[in-house]
Design a protein around this nucleic acid. Structure first.
Length: 276
DNA sequence: AAAGCACCCTGTACGC
DNA sequence: TGCGTACAGGGTGCTT
C-alpha cells in the first residue's frame, strides 16, 4: 500500500527517465481511472505535453508538464513504471501513456482504486492536504498547534490527509508504537513530551522508510518503478503482527478497529488511555 | 467536529 | 479439490 515513502520512491525512480519526454498519446482501458477531465477530453488534452518535472505531494505522484500537471494517486494497488512499448501489456494496466522515445509510462492497478488527474494547477487536487511531514517548515510548533485543536483519536487523525499528508495505515501504526502512544488516545490530550515523541516518531519512521525504499508486504505488495520490492518491512514493529511478540517487550501485539481501519499496537508499550 | 458506515474493486485467505 | 464468503485497504460521501 503506497504511502509517503513508497510514493516518494516511485517519484524518484521516474525522475530518472521522464523529464524531457513528450507524451504522444494515451490508451485508457478503464475510464474510471481518469478522475478529470472526462476521459475523452483527457485523451485529447494530454497528447503533446512534455514532462518537465517529477515530484510528490502527500501520496500523489506529481508530473509537472510544460502546461499543467498530471497527478496520479496509487491508492491501494497502483504501480507506475516505464517500459518499452513492445512489452506485452498486463491486464491490469488501465492507463498507458505513449512517450516520444518509444517507451510507455504504464499505470497498473489491480484494485482499480487509483486515479489520474490532469489539471492546470496542483492545488486543484492537493489544495486541502495537510503539511508535508518531512518538510523543513513542518516544525514541532506547527504540529503542536494542529494537534491541540483536535479531540479525535490519534490513529484516525494520523490517517486524515487534511491533518497531515502522507501517512497511511502502516506508518501511522509504526509511528504510534515508536512514540509509545495508544491509537485511541485523544489527540488533544497529549503532554508536551508526548507531542514531541510523536512528532519525532512520525518523521523518523518516514525518513527511515524512504531510505529503505518503502515497505513491501506479501505477494502483490508495493513495488517501486523498477518493479523491485522495498526493504522497510524488515523494520516493521507492529503493523500486521497481531498475536506475535512485541519486538521490544515480548507482549503479544493486539489489533483494534479504529475508524474502520485495523490498528496494531503493543498494549504494554502503548498504554491504554484512561477510560477506554 | 467526529464517528460510523457503505462504497469502490479484486486477489487471497479461509471455512466447509 | 472446489466452492462460496469474508476481508483488506485509501479516500469520499453520507448520516448520525
Amino acid at each position: 500500500m503506497p504511502e509517503l515513502p513508497e510514493v516518494e520512491t516511485v517519484a524518484r525512480d521516474l525522475r530518472e527517465s521522464l523529464p524531457g519526454r513528450t507524451i504522444t498519446g494515451v490508451t485508457v482501458r478503464w475510464p474510471r481511472t481518469i478522475a478529470c477531465p472526462p476521459p475523452d477530453e483527457f485523451r485529447q488534452a494530454i497528447a503533446g505535453r512534455r514532462v518537465t518535472s517529477v515530484g510528490r505531494r502527500g501520496k500523489y505522484v506529481v508530473l509537472g508538464l510544460d502546461r499543467g500537471y498530471l497527478l496520479i494517486h496509487l491508492k491501494m494497488s497502483g504501480r507506475l513504471y516505464v517500459t518499452p512499448a513492445g512489452q506485452a501489456a498486463d491486464r491490469h494496466e488501465h492507463t498507458i501513456f505513449d512517450l516520444d522515445d518509444g517507451q510507455q509510462l504504464r499505470f497498473q492497478d489491480v484494485r482499480k482504486f487509483g486515479r489520474v488527474y490532469l489539471v492546470d494547477d496542483v492545488e486543484q487536487v492537493t489544495g486541502n492536504l495537510g503539511p508535508e511531514p518531512l518538510a523543513d517548515d513542518f516544525t514541532l510548533v506547527t504540529f503542536r498547534r494542529r494537534l491541540e485543536r483536535r479531540s479525535g483519536r490519534l490513529k484516525s487523525l494520523l490517517l486524515n490527509q487534511f491533518f497531515l499528508a502522507g501517512l497511511g495505515n502502516i506508518y501511522a501504526d509504526e509511528a504510534l508504537f515508536q512514540a509509545g502512544l495508544h491509537p485511541l488516545r485523544p489527540a488533544g490530550s497529549l503532554t508536551p513530551a508526548e507531542q514531541e515523541r510523536l512528532y519525532n516518531a512520525i518523521r523518523g519512521v518516514l525518513r527511515q522508510a524512504v531510505a529503505n525504499r518503502g515497505t513491501t508486504l506479501g505477494d502483490g505488495g508495493y513495488v517501486d518503478a523498477r518493479g523491485e520490492a522495498g526493504q522497510h518491512q524488515e523494520q516493521i514493529m507492529v503493523y500486521g503482527r497481531t498475536g506475535k511478540s512485541c519486538l521490544r517487550c515480548g507482549t503479544p501485539i493486539e489489533r483494534l478497529v479504529v475508524g474502520g481501519r485495523s490498528s496494531h499496537f503493543c498494549p504494554r508499550c502503548q498504554k491504554d488511555p484512561a477510560g477506554v
